[in-house]
């Protein structure tokens, strides 16, 4: 029911979870120094030879990687290696930083997102973002979730909006906790609830991809576990790219893992393989805690 409405906005084939668009016949593995296979059979997003500069300083060096449908891709690496920077390229949040400059090619379902014709508003509706620090709007719980559908005109009337809000809160596993306090400020919730509210807010516009930048770093283990469960459930409907400092978390929630180091994408692979049998020395050092 959501998908139909969103089709107008998204201008892409209505997304159904089990039928990704036909994949290219021959996948050309790009020319990179990255160890492991960076491509996937059915990519929703592809990035090729992405460089990011802050002024003169290069923060991302020639990174190519794909994001598949219905997968959780985790990005790990030491602090300052450019994980956030790369993540923010995927929905052009880097546009807000004046000194940032992005080159290379990033495509969402075959459309270049840095193309002049691409509307950043539509892009960000399709590629949502959850931030490190929970940042609910200082409005009611309801308004927080209803905001996206409102600005994108996804609901024709109040009852549709109510339904979207309820569905999103349910999917974020927050409905039972907040259903009696929808009118109260979202900032009054606990940290974990706030983060789930932000996730609900994000999925209320039914994006294709959700970017999460250390979504659990401000939360206690129990709240973290809830979010991890949630991420796993969300995978049924969305592709998720998550930056995390917790290798356990990466191991628990993701199917593929990418290891960044000083702006380079060192290694990509199945999470299980990377954690048990890293190919690159740097990856191994980091995973075994010898990095430093």
């Amino acid at each position: 029911m959501l998908n139909q409405k969103h089709a107008v906005l998204l201008e892409s084939p209505a997304k159904t979870n089990d039928v990704p668009p036909p994949s290219p016949v021959q996948i050309q593995e790009p020319d990179t120094k990255t160890v492991g296979r960076v491509t996937v059979d059915k990519p929703i997003m592809t990035t090729r030879n992405v460089d990011v500069y802050y002024g003169d300083k290069q923060a991302i060096i020639d990174v190519s990687i794909d994001v598949a449908y219905n997968e959780v891709l985790s990005m790990i690496g030491p602090s300052g290696c450019g994980k956030s920077t790369f993540l923010r390229c995927l929905n052009r949040m880097n546009d807000t930083i004046e000194s940032a400059r992005v080159t290379g090619k990033i495509e969402l379902e075959g459309h270049d997102i840095y193309d002049k014709k691409t509307d950043v508003v539509t892009l960000r509706a399709r590629v949502g973002m959850v931030f490190q620090k929970p940042n609910p709007f200082p409005k009611s719980v309801y308004e927080n979730v209803a905001y996206g559908p409102r600005i994108h005109g996804l609901a024709r009337n109040q009852s549709e909006l109510d339904e979207i809000v309820q569905t999103s809160l349910r999917r974020a596993g927050l409905w039972d906790e907040v259903k009696d306090r929808l009118g109260q400020p979202g900032t009054g919730l606990s940290g974990g609830q706030q983060q789930r509210l932000c996730i609900a807010r994000c999925i209320a516009v039914n994006p294709d991809v959700i970017l999460m930048d250390e979504p659990c770093s401000a939360l206690d283990p129990i709240a973290t576990a809830r979010i991890e469960e949630l991420i796993d459930e969300l995978r049924q409907n969305y592709s998720i790219v998550i930056v995390t400092h917790s290798m356990q978390q990466a191991a628990r929630v993701s199917q593929r893992t990418a290891y960044f180091h000083l702006g380079d994408l060192i290694e990509v692979g199945e999470t299980a393989t990377i954690f048990t049998n890293p190919q690159d020395k740097l990856t191994e050092d980091y995973l075994t805690g010898r990095f430093g």
Binding site: N91, M93, T96, V121, T122, L123, R124, A125, G128, M129, F131, K133, N135, P136, F137, P138, Y147, G148, I151, H152, C198, R201, C202, V205
Partner: peptide, 23 residues
């Protein structure tokens, strides 16, 4: 106004003007 609010709005796909007017 905290930048996190701005990022939150922009990350939802709010335009610059919507971000300013609404938040």
């Amino acid at each position: 106004v905290p930048p996190s609010i701005r990022e939150g709005a922009l990350g939802m796909g709010a335009s610059q003007m919507q971000m300013i007017a609404h938040h």
